[in-house]
Amino acid sequence: MPVTSVDRDLDRLTLTITAEFPVPVRRLWDAYVDPRQLEKFWGPPTWPATFTRHDVFPGGRSDYYMTGPDGTRAGGYWEFLSVDEGRSFEVLDGFSHDDGRPNTDLPTTRAVFTFGETATGSRLETTTHFNSVDELEKLIEMGIEEGTREAMGQIEAVVTDDATFAADTGTQSRFLDDRTVRFSRILRGTPQQVWDAHHDPELLDRWFHGPDGWALVDCRVASAPGETTRFEWAPDDGVEGEAFALTGELVSTDPPHREVFTETMEGAGAPPTLNEQTLTAVEGGTLMTLVITYDSAELRDMILGTGMVDGMETGYRRLESEVLTRT
């Protein structure tokens, strides 16, 4: 088992669990900052986790739920207090109701995750700070220690998988529920470079021009919440098709890590989607995570049925070749 020690310190009100893994620190770190990987081990084997949000930067937040064998859900959240890339992060760790609101009937703890090298790979030390002995004992009774042991027992299978989450796997999608889809892609560039490529009109014109034979003919980028966006594409001469545009409103922004915006096709009459995009530094570049919530499952299926994922992949390849890796 990866767990090498468990230390309960009643004087300091802490529970420290240490585990070791046969991979470099960077590989172990990436497993925690990539929600696709984290949800494969965060919950115990019989209570797998689904992360609907995962923002690994100071002030960021993660939301997740674990699903039991009978379909029961148990929700939780992290609020990131500090992040030292590749070395440590500190979070407020709490429980949540089904609608995402914090469950104040259960304790909120502070957890510090510290990553370090060993002679054979890497070490993870997780120290949970409790507010009282009663809280510590309550959470131990709820199975926090055993659950953490079981979760860490699943990490090795994830971090030794060199193919599933590699940078060259292309755009991946996963249904988070009947209206929400998460799209993921590692892009060869820093978060700031990827952010700029999505917000600088000159850079957008180099890659965000739709299918081959089409051009971006209008580009209005929002920089503050409440401002609107508009992107219009038109076919080149000799190419069939009619011009179309996507419009939306910026809801929130935290450059270069995260932004939330609405989006809809102009003139179509369809309800807008809610798009949440997060950029996270990983080995090989930046993990782009885009979570889209549709008004209905029918709208989701209709939009995905247009070949959206393939179109996204074409655009991201163009982004890499024309902007991120262009000299």
Rank of each mutant, 00 (worst) to 15 (best):
T16F: 01
L81C: 06
T164G: 04
T14P: 00
M66H: 02
T262D: 12
T46F: 01
P211R: 09
S122D: 09
F130C: 13
W214P: 03
D7W: 02
T262Q: 14
A49L: 09
E259F: 01
I292Y: 00
G71W: 04
E249S: 12
F165I: 09
P271T: 10
D63G: 02
R101P: 01
D84R: 08
H209G: 04
A268R: 02
F41R: 05
V112F: 03
P24W: 01
E249T: 15
S296R: 11
F51V: 07
V217N: 03
H209R: 09
T114Y: 02
F113N: 12
L139Y: 02
P102K: 00
P45F: 03
Q154W: 04
W195S: 13
P45M: 10
D30Q: 06
T306N: 09
V158C: 10
F41M: 10
G285R: 03
A234C: 09
T293P: 00
E266Y: 00
V25K: 03
L287F: 04
V194K: 03
V239I: 13
T229A: 08
P272Q: 13
D200A: 07
R179Y: 06
P24A: 11
L204D: 10
A157C: 05
A297Y: 03
Y316V: 06
Q192V: 12
D254I: 08
E156K: 00
P69S: 08
H97L: 14
E232Q: 11
A197I: 11
R87K: 15
R326L: 15
H209M: 07
G170A: 12
T228D: 11
T67M: 05
D212K: 04
K40M: 14
G153N: 13
P24V: 05
V221G: 07
R12F: 05
A243C: 08
T247Y: 01
L92A: 14
E79Y: 00
E202N: 12
F175I: 05
S62T: 11
S132F: 05
R258G: 06
E141W: 01
I303W: 02
T127K: 12
S296N: 15
D236N: 07
V239L: 13
P191R: 03
M312E: 07
P211A: 14
K138Q: 15
G71I: 09
T14R: 08
D162M: 04
V221Q: 08
V181H: 05
T247G: 09
R73A: 06
E145Q: 15
E232V: 12
S184Y: 02
F175W: 06
D162K: 02
M288R: 08
L246P: 01
Q37Y: 06
L279M: 12
M152L: 15
W233F: 14
T278E: 15
E202M: 05
E85D: 14
L299T: 10
T108F: 06
L38H: 04
F231C: 05
R185L: 14
Y65G: 01
G305L: 14
P271N: 10
T262I: 07
I140G: 06
A49R: 01
N275A: 12
R220K: 11
T171C: 13
E232K: 01
A111P: 01
D237E: 15
E322T: 09
T16L: 07
P272F: 02
A167K: 08
R326I: 08
D218R: 10
L203P: 09
L304C: 08
E150A: 10
F130E: 11
D11R: 00
E156V: 11
F115A: 12
